[in-house]
């Protein structure tokens, strides 16, 4: 189970890092709200500048808030829209469940959807919530996340698995030809990810156990290429 980092681990970490100040800090997330970013209310901006990449930082000097601060949940719907996922994620139950699991930030890539989530700066101790429509650098968001909640597109799934991030795939039941659930269910059976529907997402988050995840070994295209070469009479190696 994911819990906020306990105090004695914190102390150890702090001692270690005080010697290696030049190294990037693994617990510090990379997203920081930029003061200069343009207003972002229309939902039509193609490349959102709302979140900006910022280098990991060190705040030493007896301030250990730093280590418990950020655990980002990144939600991505891909190139289309998936309003029922965004609506579910933005619901109070799901946000509470995420808080209980120790997550602090929620970043939603909402695509072409029309449902606009509520932004929150987390002043009342709840999740910090922000959203954007599309970004050319989804990889950076994935990298910064402690948990990814994704639509069932194979592109997003494998990009996340390759980064070895915990992943909950939410199958869109509104799609006509719903072959996408095949992949998510197969990979869930092999324990590489968790599979949910919008209505079961909350339950899945509540019972989330990241220890059961089996890391995904990336595939290898070489055997296919070799057979093609062989068929065409090219030397096989």
């Amino acid at each position: 189970m994911f819990k906020p980092i306990s105090s004695h681990r914190l102390t150890n970490l702090r001692i270690n890092y005080s010697f290696y100040q030049a190294l990037p800090c693994p617990t510090c997330t990379i997203y920081n709200r930029s003061k200069n970013s343009p207003a972002h209310d229309t939902g039509n901006v193609l490349y959102s500048q709302f979140w900006q990449w910022k280098a990991p930082c060190y705040k030493m000097g007896g301030n250990n808030n730093h280590f418990e601060s950020k655990k980002v949940v990144f939600v991505t719907v891909g190139t289309t829209s998936f309003d029922s996922l965004v609506t579910t994620v933005d619901s109070d139950q799901v946000k509470e469940a995420l808080s209980e699991q120790g997550y602090t930030h929620l970043v939603i890539q909402m695509g072409r959807g029309s449902f606009i989530p509520k932004k929150s700066n987390g002043e009342d101790g709840s999740l910090v919530v922000d959203y954007f429509t599309f970004s050319s650098s989804i990889a950076n968001y994935l990298q910064s996340a402690s948990l990814v909640i994704s639509h069932a597109g194979s592109g997003s799934i494998f990009e996340t698995l390759r980064m070895a991030k915990p992943l909950i795939v939410v199958v869109n039941e509104d799609l006509m030809d719903n072959h996408q659930s095949e992949l998510a269910e197969e990979l869930a059976e092999r324990k590489h990810l968790f599979c949910a529907r919008p209505q079961t997402l909350c339950e899945v988050i509540k019972s989330l156990n990241l220890d059961t995840i089996v890391p995904y070994a990336p595939g290898d295209a070489n055997p296919v290429a070799k057979l093609i070469n062989k068929h065409l009479g090219f030397p096989a190696d």
């Binding site: 891909g78 194979s154 799934i157 295209a221």
Partner: peptide, 14 residues
């Protein structure tokens, strides 16, 4: 999306 990524993976070893 996903289809293209798979194809590029194949092409990269050809």
């Amino acid at each position: 999306g996903g289809h293209t990524a798979e194809m590029i993976n194949l092409l990269s070893v050809m």
